[in-house]
Design a binder for these strands. Sequence first.
DNA 1: CTTATATACAACCGATCGGTCGTTAATGTA
DNA 2: TACATTAACGACCGATCGGTTGTATATAAG
Lengths: 210, 210
Amino acid sequence: MTQDGRRLRGLRSREAILEQAVALASVEGLDGLSLGRLAAATGTSKSGFFAHWRDKEQLQLDAVEWAARQWTEHVVVPTLRAPAGVRRVFALHEARLRFYEDGVLPGGCFFFTVQAEFDDRPGAVRDRVARAMGEWLGFVRHQVEQAVALGELAGDVDPAQLAYEIDALGEMAVVHSRLHGGELSLLHARRAVLQRLRALCPDPALLPED
Amino acid sequence: MTQDGRRLRGLRSREAILEQAVALASVEGLDGLSLGRLAAATGTSKSGFFAHWRDKEQLQLDAVEWAARQWTEHVVVPTLRAPAGVRRVFALHEARLRFYEDGVLPGGCFFFTVQAEFDDRPGAVRDRVARAMGEWLGFVRHQVEQAVALGELAGDVDPAQLAYEIDALGEMAVVHSRLHGGELSLLHARRAVLQRLRALCPDPALLPED
DNA sequence: CTTATATACAACCGATCGGTCGTTAATGTA
DNA sequence: TACATTAACGACCGATCGGTTGTATATAAG
């Protein structure tokens, strides 16, 4: 298990396939994505997948995992550099919008597409997606709770309520911007959360004016 | 063109098929929906579709049209009975949440599913969906503008901005409620808009407290 | 060196996809 | 009555779907 040569090559191609799978699924969905097209996009053969995954569902589950790591890396981790409290809450929102704006994924948001695809379809993939979204929402809520504890948000704020609002206002930005074109939607999403936080913050100077 | 007998039967089955197509597409999407399964669900033969529609895309376009009419009937029309102004704006939001809560469509929301499916896929269906969503957003914005004109919302309110917020907060409710179960998400969506409107309304007595 | 394992492949499988064709029967039109 | 149209169907088409099998080969383990 020295993790080189053959083993390493396997890991590399596995990761390259997952990277492609997440990118393609952000456009066509995890089910809409076909193994044949994924093979073509990665330059490998279709049957080669089954050396890495038992069936399509296993690949879908690993793709969700990979997308979650990617989200953590691009959105969660950079945010933790901001000071805890209301500034970090807003930094979280801005990091998400930047993720969309930068076009990290060709479809904008993996989880938006996959949520819409699986929210009505019971199964392992749905459960894994629900868990990932639950963890994300829990993280947002935790940041809100910290801000309340620090006195940077009004004491009567319901953290779960505010976390829902931040998530909804951010998540719909990607679809609006793609469907109606332009960055106006991203601006709306940014302003919505900013105004909401400033209204709830005893010291609005912690946040940008606009 | 006396519209009876054969002609009438054609119209009836056409409408029955569209009704089923919208319902199924709210779960599996317009592309995920297959003609074979649609035939099974409507008790007709697959090849019979092509007497009504040239190809699948034509059926998809008509399904979008049908879903838009259904949305108008269930959400827009009832709302117009409320007095213009901030009360109608909130009534609009509540009518949408009731649409989800009542389970009018098995998948919750046709347009949410279809938006996620087509926002990255150029073509006639995407354009038709974008138009429908644009009209809806425009309607919401118009109601906000009326409320501002009536002095029931603060004069510095940006109608497009507020319309985005109302739409985003309402639309994400259906996914959250289905993925994480329970009506808490619907409550969050309701409260979010209610608090926002009350904060912007010179006479909060026009709106319920909670 | 030997042997088991893991990567990757081409060829192939049954099922299903969207779609075509030819036909039947009921209806609308003249 | 004569004829064109329409709804609806079963049978069938090539393409693609997820998945299986057998094989070649490079590596890891003994």
